[in-house]
Simulated scan of single mutants.
Amino acid sequence: MKVAMVICQDTPEVIWNAFRLGNMMLEGMDDVSIFLNGPSVRYEESDSQQFPLKELARIFTLSEGQLFA
């Protein structure tokens, strides 16, 4: 299945859940793309111990997920 997600918020929990879902779908051999729009482009600024956004994004791209901004 091909899935595209669009994230338009800068809320760390929303971005974190999108990357988690994308990574789970990639494990199931789906094609996943995430498009960061507006304030979500600055997701790295919201990286924290509670919401490790940089690490999830790294795993997503290394697992052949497509990340657009």
Rank of each mutant, 00 (worst) to 15 (best):
V41N: 09
E44T: 01
Q49A: 12
Q66S: 14
V41W: 04
Q66E: 15
V32M: 06
F19P: 13
Y43H: 06
M25F: 01
N23I: 00
Y43S: 01
E27S: 09
F60G: 10
F51Y: 11
D47N: 08
M5Y: 15
D31T: 05
I34P: 05
F19M: 02
L56H: 03
E27D: 05
A69N: 14
M25D: 03
I15H: 04
I7K: 00
L56Y: 06
Q50W: 08
G65C: 02
E13L: 15
P39L: 10
F68P: 12
T61W: 09
E44S: 06
I15V: 14
M24P: 03
F19W: 09
P52R: 00
R20I: 10
T11R: 14
G22L: 04
F68I: 15
E64Q: 12
E45L: 04
E13T: 13
Y43L: 09
F35W: 14
S46Y: 09
Q49W: 08
N17D: 08
L67P: 00
D10H: 07
R58W: 08
D30L: 12
L21M: 13
M5C: 10
G22Q: 08
M5G: 10
E13I: 15
A57G: 01
T61H: 09
S33T: 13
G28K: 14
E55G: 04
Q49E: 08
W16K: 05
Q50Y: 07
L21V: 13
T61K: 05
F60K: 05
P12M: 02
E64F: 13
L26W: 00
F35H: 14
F51S: 04
C8Q: 15
E44A: 01
I34K: 01
L56R: 01
V3P: 09
Y43Q: 08
P52K: 01
C8G: 12
L36V: 11
S63T: 02
A69K: 14
L56D: 00
W16N: 15
P39R: 04
F35A: 15
L53Q: 09
G28H: 11
A57L: 02
F51H: 05
L62G: 07
V6G: 10
I34L: 07
F35I: 10
E64Y: 12
D47K: 00
E13P: 09
Q9F: 13
L53T: 09
D30E: 11
D47M: 00
F68S: 15
P12R: 03
E44V: 06
L36C: 05
G22F: 02
R42M: 02
I59W: 07
S33F: 07
F19H: 13
L26M: 11
V41D: 10
S48G: 07
S63A: 02
